[in-house]
């Protein structure tokens, strides 16, 4: 079930959503069991990838998903909305659960005050996750306002250019929301392998990483903070994906885990409610 509208108000979006849900329930079988509100801030260039991830996610996390597509240069200022209600069958008795996807194009000045747009659309009393695509504009109103609305900010620092400085800015947001970095999650098999090198690794002098800059920086920050070794050297060779980690020229074999799709990676972050003290410690060291 879908609804599309141009130049809409937020209350119109709310009403249309309620109507779609009533239509679904008229079939007598739909049920809304939400576990979270999931906001995604998706500039146009990330939109195809983001929608692909959401498609793989909907069934696993029956949530209300609000995709915000900022178009600050468009005029006139307006909100265009695309609503979609998807039903997923449950068991054998014909019942199903529904998830709601609200895609809002924030045109012109509307892109500067996203918090006031999403707040009326949050499902009451449920945690709010925000997946911010690309590097957040730290200090600007659209990011700072949204940060105060969400319980958890999910980023992927592999998408960032301004490293390691952006980490410092991100660390400044830690007291306002829990933060997850998908790049950090990708390091898991390597961290598990490195942990097995204890106690010898405590004496290591150099770690070499061939992969994205974010991965190299995070891995080195983790080793330095955990081993209390500020003098541990990082040698970094740029590569599109994490290919090699070696400690004092000895290559490390990552622990074999099931490969994760982009949807799995985000899904895992949406399952986390606590803070990751180890990640925060690494982040604060930049």
């Amino acid at each position: 079930m879908e609804w599309v509208g141009t130049d809409v108000t937020v209350s119109e979006v709310e009403q249309r959503l309620a109507r779609l849900r009533m239509e679904a329930e008229a079939g007598g079988t739909a049920q809304r069991t939400s576990v979270a509100t999931h906001i995604a801030w998706v500039p146009e260039q990330w939109l195809p990838a983001a929608l692909e991830v959401l498609r793989g996610l909907a069934e696993r996390h029956p949530s209300r998903t609000i995709v915000l597509v900022p178009e600050p240069d468009a005029s006139p200022a307006a909100i265009d909305a695309e609503l979609e209600l998807s039903l997923f069958p449950l068991g054998e008795d014909g019942r199903s659960i529904c998830t709601e996807t609200v895609l809002l194009r924030l045109r012109g000045a509307r892109a500067h005050a996203p918090a006031s747009i999403v707040t009326p659309l949050l499902v009451s009393d449920l945690p709010v996750f925000c997946r911010w695509r690309g590097e957040p504009p730290f200090g600007l109103s659209e990011f700072e306002q949204l940060l105060d609305v969400v319980d958890r900010l999910v980023v992927d620092s592999e998408e960032w250019e301004d490293l390691p400085f952006a980490y410092k800015k991100l660390a400044g947001s830690l007291d306002r929301a829990a933060i997850s970095d998908i790049a950090w999650q990708r390091l898991m098999p390597w961290r598990m392998a490195l942990a097995r090198l204890w106690p010898g690794i405590a004496e290591a002098s150099t770690v070499r990483v061939a992969g994205p800059k974010a991965d190299a920086l995070l891995l080195a920050a983790w080793l330095r903070t955990r081993l209390r070794r500020d003098d541990l050297l990082l040698e970094h060779d740029a590569a599109a994906a994490l290919e090699l980690v070696s400690v004092d020229r000895q290559p490390v074999v990552p622990i074999e885990l099931d490969p994760l799709t982009p949807s799995d990676l985000l899904s895992n972050e949406l399952d986390r409610f606590g803070r990751d003290a180890i990640y925060e410690q690494a982040l604060k060291s930049f």
Binding site: L194, A195, W198, I201, I278
Partner: peptide
């Protein structure tokens, strides 16, 4: 071993 903390073991 300080590296195992936080790992999903």
């Amino acid at each position: 071993n300080p590296l195992v903390e936080g790992l999903e073991l």
